[in-house]
């Protein structure tokens, strides 16, 4: 027990590495601050393509979405980061993270929005169009708000997944929270930094996960 506490809950070690981990946390939050909004918006674009009435837009989009849903995000990340330099395209680690995770999350968000749009009754669109609203206005004011409301738990849940996804950036040495923690672990020969990082992730995400559970059970 003593040994367990020493290894995982060593308060001295935690106090010592806390400022370092905080820097990692900032990097994580920075990543999230552009990945989440851009992901949410590009997901709408993906949905517009996969639900387009034009086959020439719809089919390539569906194939691309399925392809990237089958593609592990880490493999995509390594491919972008380690593969492209071979043809002279050296991308900074942060850009590689942005590209790889945006492709991944836009596909997932897109599928969620699509499910939401399917759940909006056809009559809503017809009612809106019959009052003279254009197709874009109908989407903006009538169908999309309802679609989003219907799939809110899934959107939240995918956002949690996106935050967790940022830990993969540590594999290509982006100094985000988990990377900092793992570095601190190897320097202190103690796992408490990892546990501290885990606690920070829990503080960040557990409230959202609780909220999702509440929303889902209400539905």
């Amino acid at each position: 027990m003593e040994q367990f506490t020493q290894e995982f809950f060593n308060l001295d070690v935690m106090a010592k590495v806390a400022p370092f981990l905080l820097q990692g946390l900032l990097q994580t939050l920075l990543l999230c601050s552009f990945l989440i909004p851009i992901g949410l918006v590009s997901g709408i674009l993906v949905m517009l393509l996969t639900t387009s009435p034009y086959r020439l837009l719809r089919w390539p989009a569906i194939v691309a979405v399925d392809f990237f849903r089958a593609f592990p995000p880490l493999v995509l990340l390594v491919f972008v980061y380690a593969g492209l330099p071979f043809i002279g395209l050296r991308v900074p680690a942060l850009v590689a993270v942005a590209v790889a995770f945006l492709i991944n999350s836009a596909s997932y968000y897109g599928e969620i929005y699509r499910a939401g749009m399917v759940s909006v009754p056809k009559g809503q669109r017809e009612a809106a169009r019959s009052t003279g609203l254009s197709a874009t206005q109908t989407l903006l004011y009538v169908t999309l708000p309802q679609a989003i409301r219907n799939v809110l738990p899934d959107l939240l849940s995918n956002t949690v997944e996106l935050v967790k996804l940022t830990t993969l950036a540590s594999v290509i040495s982006v100094p985000e929270l988990l990377h900092s923690a793992n570095l601190a672990r190897s320097l202190t020969y103690n796992s408490s930094p990892l546990i501290l990082a885990a606690i920070i992730y829990l503080l960040l995400l557990l409230p959202v996960v609780r909220l999702i559970a509440r929303l889902e059970h209400r539905l």
Binding site: F8, V160, L165, A181, R185, S191, L194, I195, A198, L206
Partner: peptide
């Protein structure tokens, strides 16, 4: 709730690097 919130890589690192100690 905990395993829905934790990043899988964090769990993996704790088990792999922490438990041997």
């Amino acid at each position: 709730d905990i395993f829905r919130s934790l990043p899988p890589l964090a769990i993996i690192l704790v088990l792999f690097f922490g438990f041997p100690n």
